[in-house]
Design a protein around this nucleic acid. Structure first.
Length: 686
RNA sequence: CGCGGGGUAGAGCAGUUGGUAGCUCGUCAGGCUCAUAACCUGGAGGUCGCCCGUUCGAGUCGGGCUCCCGCAACCA
């Protein structure tokens, strides 16, 4: 379905203002979006590139309470930090605003109000858990209580992490506020829902039939949601941080973040256009003109919001265009582990910029070369070093240096005149002439990894050309011929500067300075007369320098250290529970059991099946969710502590007759408790 | 059996409509010496996660199994 668009609106997922940006965000969203934006601008196409911080929602309020500062201070700090890092990294947003801006509050409010007035929402009152002391309703994840299945004391409102059961808050025994520990009561509250079920039909046609070209991860995720049938989704929340619901009687309620955040793209566009009307025109043309192409760059966790919920909102509003494509990347891992903001395990952009100054393009290159376009990929510092040194330095930088050094050596830095082309020259030119077409095809198809490789291929062609032509030999016998060789090598160099501009803007700029190329455009790509004969070039310098071992070693060590330090810091002994009487304690019959056998339970990730000698003469079977931490063989012959009079229960089709005691370490690891001395099975503990 | 994506040389990835399995890095050998010990050429290295089926022919199509990641649960 080839459509012709006049202009393009590019959005990139709004980073959440509760922490700095890390390489996962960059690889997933901002680097590809920036490449695309730079490419379109270089082509002279009309486009805007929208970014901004998402500053509403629950996590920022939690962070503020933890640090003892105001929510505003939290979002200010991270908004400024993120904005500054993006600028230094060369992410070329046309606007980077925030969802706490007055423009956004008004626009999001009006958006909601219009849908409300036109009866696009469903109103529904439901019973929610409420903390009377803090005056807050709680989300599922912030409610804890006793698990109805395994009776672990700290199950979450959505899941018990001990037995793995999927729960709803209603099932928990004695629910309490995870943060404050206060008991909870049920209280009715009214909310507004977007009836997505009514959008089912057109969404199915729009995505499944009209957008088969979307990436398979995006298309598949959407199909799965559509196949499962869409349900109404709440668009409001009981919170005091956010955009107030603009309806009378809705005090204390705000717009749900996923409702307000995508509208932020529109608000930020409006801010941009209002500030530069002569350059960008009215904001509406970027969002309401069917000749505008809307493209959302996001990570895979955001697919459903951008492909189903937000389009449904836009459609309900009526005036807006829908996204034409939603290129979504998978996730980037770091040294084999998941990147995690909460666990502080990441390479933070602001720290990278400080610690490896002037190395923006190196990171951009590696993140694109290893971009998780089709599946999760791994970032390692060794790979970073290898790619920088073996590809950027050895292939690209070295070719440029060869061409420029030879020009200095033979012609005092003047571009020589081109003589007659021989067959080999023509063959080489033929190879690099269609680089432009291939690059365009790949970039338009959002295949940035492949596209960058294609640009790098230009440098490979150049290296091969110089090596095959051997100008350092030919100069002794046929100096005229050498002029042509160097001339063509310089033209390839100029082409490199253009081809790499979207990917590596910093080094492209330096390279253009080295070859005194003031004006250029994408259309020059493939030309062999970009640098005119006789042009004087300045003294060359190195385009890239090597990444030394100690730099990489320091980064690796830092990661390991922060990982350890944060795990230790996160540890805090839980407060002691209320006093119990001796009689209460006596009710528990804790005993020693000798492990006769232990094996994994089939089809289960977490469960181990123990057969214990409990001194009764009969075997006792106990299932325990510790498979993650123990090889079953290691436990055979050990003495473990278990609760003997625990009510038996069924798990994975087996009956478990008791509970094996283990200690939970600060990092969540389990350690089965055992006795030091050889005590007989069945001995009582007390 | 909740849903989606993925499993292809030592590492990272491509493989378009089924027809001799490719690329980058690493590795080994050779060449070159203008260049940041860089560059060029060639070689070795794969039962395409496992099993069954369709077909003259399967990495590719269908079925079953298995492992990793994500979503549902506000980290891209």
């Amino acid at each position: 379905m080839e459509k012709h668009f006049k202009r393009t609106t590019i959005t990139s997922a709004l980073p959440y203002a509760n922490g700095p940006v890390h390489i996962g965000h960059l690889a997933g969203v901002y680097v590809p979006a920036d490449i695309y934006a730079r490419y379109l601008r270089l082509k002279g196409r009309e486009c805007i590139f929208i970014g901004g911080s998402d500053e509403h929602g629950v996590p920022v309020t939690i962070r503020a309470r933890k640090e003892g500062i105001t929510v505003q201070e939290v979002v200010d700090r991270y908004h400024n930090l993120i904005k500054d890092s993006f600028e230094r990294f060369g992410i070329s947003f046309d606007v980077y605003s925030r969802t706490t801006s007055p423009t956004h509050h008004k626009l999001a409010s009006d958006f909601f109000r219009k849908l409300y007035d036109e009866g696009k929402f469903i109103e529904q009152v439901s019973e929610q858990f409420y903390d009377e002391q803090t005056g807050h309703f709680l989300t599922d994840r912030n409610i804890r209580g006793e698990c109805p299945r395994c009776h672990a004391p700290e199950a979450y409102g959505d899941q018990c992490e001990v037995c793995g059961a999927t729960l709803s808050p209603e099932e928990l025994i004695n629910p309490y506020n995870a943060e404050t520990g206060n008991p909870l009561v049920k209280k009715p509250t009214k909310h507004w829902y977007l009836p997505l079920d009514k959008d089912q039909q057109w969404l199915e046609k729009w995505i499944l039939e009209d957008h088969k070209e979307w990436r398979s991860n995006v298309y598949g995720q959407c199909k799965s949601w559509l196949d499962g049938g869409l349900h109404p989704r709440a668009v409001t929340r009981d919170l005091d941080w956010g955009i107030p619901v603009p309806i009378e009687g809705a005090e204390g309620k705000v717009l749900y973040v996923w409702f307000d955040a995508p509208i932020g793209y529109i608000s930020n566009t409006k801010e941009l256009c209002d500030a530069n009307p002569e350059k960008f025109g009215p904001w509406e043309k970027w969002w309401k003109d069917p000749e505008t192409r809307l493209v959302h760059f996001i990570g895979k966790d955001n697919i459903v919001f951008h492909c189903i919920v937000f389009p449904a909102m836009l459609k309900a509003h009526g005036d807006y265009i829908l996204p034409d494509n939603v290129p979504s990347n998978e996730f980037l891992n770091l040294e084999g582990n998941k990147i995690s903001t909460s666990k502080n395990y990441a390479v933070w952009l602001n720290e990278y910029l400080d610690e490896l100054p002037g190395r923006q393009d190196e990171l951009r290159y590696v993140l694109t070369a290893n971009a998780p376009e089709t599946k999760d990929n791994d970032f390692t510092w060794d790979d970073f070093q290898a790619r920088c040194n073996n590809e950027l330095v050895a292939v690209y930088g070295n070719f440029v240096n060869r061409a420029l050094q030879l020009t200095q050596k033979y012609y005092e830095g003047q571009v020589p005149a081109c003589g007659e082309l021989n067959a080999y020259d023509k063959e080489t030119l033929a190879e690099f002439c269609d680089v432009k077409a291939r690059l365009e095809q790949l970039l338009e198809g959002f295949k940035f990894r492949e596209a960058q490789k294609e640009a790098m291929n230009l440098a490979r062609i150049g290296n091969k050309y110089i090596a095959d032509c051997e100008p350092w030999k030919v100069v002794k016998t046929d100096p005229e011929r050498v002029k042509t060789i160097i001339y063509l090598s310089l033209q390839i160099t100029a082409n490199l500067a253009i081809a790499f501009e979207p990917f590596l803007p910093f080094s492209s700029k330096r390279l253009r300075e080295m070859i005194a190329l003031d004006t250029f455009s994408w259309e020059d790509l493939g030309r062999t007369d970009i640098l005119p004969a006789g042009k004087q070039l300045p003294k060359p310098e190195l385009l890239f320098t090597k990444i030394e071992d100690d730099v990489v070693a320091a980064q690796k060590k830092k990661l390991e250290d922060t990982l350890k330090a944060n795990a230790e810091a996160a540890y805090k002994a839980a407060p002691v529970k209320p006093t119990v009487s001796f009689e209460d304690f006596e009710k528990l019959d804790i005993r020693v059991g000798l492990v006769k056998s232990c094996e994994k339970v089939k089809k289960s990730k977490k469960l181990l099946k123990f057969i214990l000698d409990d001194g009764s003469g009969k075997d006792r079977t106990i299932l325990s969710g510790i498979a993650q931490w123990y090889e079953p063989e290691r436990l055979v012959g050990k003495r473990v502590l278990f609760i003997a009079n625990f009510a038996p229960r069924q798990m994975m089709g087996e009956e478990s007759q008791g509970m094996i005691l283990s200690a939970v370490n600060f990092n969540g690891d389990l350690s089965v408790t055992t006795t030091i001395d050889d005590v007989r099975g069945g001995s009582q503990v007390g």
